[in-house]
């Protein structure tokens, strides 16, 4: 199972285990190609439900300092689109089964050629695409190219996105709807705004059963625990990079952090809180 069905299945399985899906972001090529592959394999082993692989880009305008620095380092190591696709193949060879979505800015895809790129994505074993600088109006060609191959399209939405637009974004989301927790860029945050809960409820209502994951700023197990019943998935990126950096990119520290995040995502059914109903994977 690959592509759209693999992505939807990841959410379905997490839900069956009474928890939010844990989605992790890692920039391919950071700190170098081999280490990034090793770390992604470690993340998969320790409980990631889905992994977003960052394609380095020279001008990552939706990213904060942590991911800017990491992807810049990857570029300096000579990592370009081709190396990212190779990395995907190596991750699959290492036995990783979880869905993998590439997170890339628009220009590297256009430079490769949209159709050819999407074919390569499939051939190398990735399942979908997330493009932070591609809003609804510009995404039709991407959606149809991905759709033709059964690959997942993952649009982003933000706190500033009005209801009707949320519904339209979700309607095109064959993977999931990626809800950005803050008006802002990526980067670990001490605190997340309280309003995010209200926005997630709104997003889920408008998403009509399409899974909604929340990301940007989510840094600690406490954040994951807080959001686990409000979203179908929780994305952690910059905080994972910080954790790996402080452990000199040791796999064990990363795995321990991933397990803690995954455990935190279990619904606290014991406090009488039951998850809000949603209809995943209709």
């Amino acid at each position: 199972m690959r592509g759209v069905s693999a992505v939807r299945d990841a959410f379905r399985r997490a839900r069956a285990e009474s928890r939010a899906a844990l989605i992790l972001y890692w920039p391919v090529g950071y700190p170098d190609l081999a280490t990034s592959v090793r770390l992604v394999v470690a993340m998969a082993r320790s409980g990631a439900d889905l992994i977003e692989l960052g394609v380095p880009f020279s001008d990552p305008l939706a990213d904060g300092p942590t991911i800017q620095r990491a992807t810049y380092r990857a570029l300096q190591q000579g990592v370009r689109t081709g190396e990212v696709l190779e990395a995907v193949a190596r991750i699959r060879e290492a036995g990783v089964e979880q869905p993998l979505c590439l997170m890339t800015y628009t220009n590297p895809v256009l430079a490769w050629g949209l159709e050819a790129f999407v074919e390569s994505v499939q051939k190398h074993g990735a399942d979908g695409l997330i493009v932070p600088d591609l809003p609804l109006e510009e995404s039709a060609p991407f959606q149809s190219a991905l759709g033709a191959l059964g690959l997942a399209w993952v649009p982003l939405a933000a706190p500033t996105t009005p209801d009707a637009r949320l519904a339209a974004l979700a309607a095109g989301a064959t993977g999931f709807l990626y809800f950005v927790s803050v008006t802002g860029i990526t980067g670990a945050r001490e605190r997340l705004p309280d309003e995010v809960v209200g926005h997630l409820r709104r997003a889920r209502r408008m998403a009509d059963g399409v899974p909604v994951a929340v990301g940007f700023g989510v840094s600690r197990p406490e954040h994951v625990a807080w959001l686990a019943t409000e979203a179908d998935g929780v994305v952690v990126g910059s905080a994972l990079i910080h954790r790996a950096e402080s452990a000199d990119f040791g796999g064990e520290a990363v795995e321990a952090f991933v397990r803690a995040l995954r455990d935190a995502g279990r619904w606290a059914l014991t406090d009488g809180l039951s998850p809000r109903s949603s209809r995943i994977g209709k």
Partner: peptide
Amino acid sequence: GGRYVPETLIPA
């Protein structure tokens, strides 16, 4: 031309 920016900015 067009409008290739994060969704956050579209309403603005």
